[in-house]
């Protein structure tokens, strides 16, 4: 990996600005990705929260789906949060019949599994490798309903895995970009991007 990686943030829709802000604060070069040409310039990618159905449609219409699938096959380091995690999962429950996912990590997820917005919540998590608690924000969050054998669980909430890693893929059911704590972004850069 190059000394200062260029980290892309998929900017089709959703909380991409908050991720870009967190990354800039950590001194990496950040670029917004909306086209295949922009994707080709990045060393790693963040797939943010937002609406996964909207992003699925835009991944197709932008021509990004196939080149991104290929980059993921070749070990692109990626952090997927909430909708981003849904798109990276193997199986999606409660999604649309035509919704494609990248199957980049061997998990199944259930969309909006905690309920509607009034059930959205904050919770403190204990995360492997981080000191103290991490303040996590869950917005109409998905749940991981099946874990593949090679998937490592880095944090759980109420007995369910919410932060997982498999090789170059890191996924979170919550929104590390919203709580003003950059330690999960740092963990992504130092452990996932640097090792990819």
């Amino acid at each position: 990996m190059v000394a200062t990686p260029t980290v892309g943030v998929l900017a089709l829709q959703g909380a991409f600005e908050s991720h870009a802000r967190a990354l800039s604060g950590l001194g990496v070069d950040v670029t917004e990705v909306r086209t295949p040409d922009q994707l080709a310039t990045v060393d790693a990618l963040i797939m943010p929260g937002g609406e996964s159905t909207t992003m699925s449609m835009l991944l197709e219409s932008s021509g990004l789906f196939d080149p991104l699938a290929e980059r993921l096959d070749h070990g692109l380091a990626v952090l997927g949060t909430c909708a981003g995690m849904i798109l990276l999962a193997d199986g999606i429950e409660g999604g649309r019949a035509d919704q494609r996912s990248f199957a980049a990590i061997d998990i199944d997820v259930s969309r909006n599994a905690y309920g509607r917005q009034i059930e959205s919540f904050e919770a403190d998590l204990t995360v492997d490798g981080l000191n103290g608690v991490f303040p996590a924000v869950f917005i109409r969050a998905p749940q991981i309903t099946r874990l593949g054998t090679d998937v490592e669980v880095l944090a759980s909430h109420e007995g369910l895995p919410v932060l997982c890693r498999s090789g170059s893929v890191l996924v979170a059911a919550f929104h590390p970009e919203l709580s003003g704590d950059d330690r999960i972004h740092r963990l992504f850069l130092e452990q996932v991007v640097a090792g990819a």
Partner: peptide, 27 residues
């Protein structure tokens, strides 16, 4: 496997604004 901590704090400003953050760039 780590143990989980506190449960759920609903209805905070961060949670309420959080959904608006997720809608950005959308219609």
């Amino acid at each position: 496997m780590t143990e989980q901590s506190s449960s759920r704090h609903t209805g905070s400003q961060l949670v309420k604004r959080g959904l608006a953050e997720m809608l950005k760039g959308g219609v």
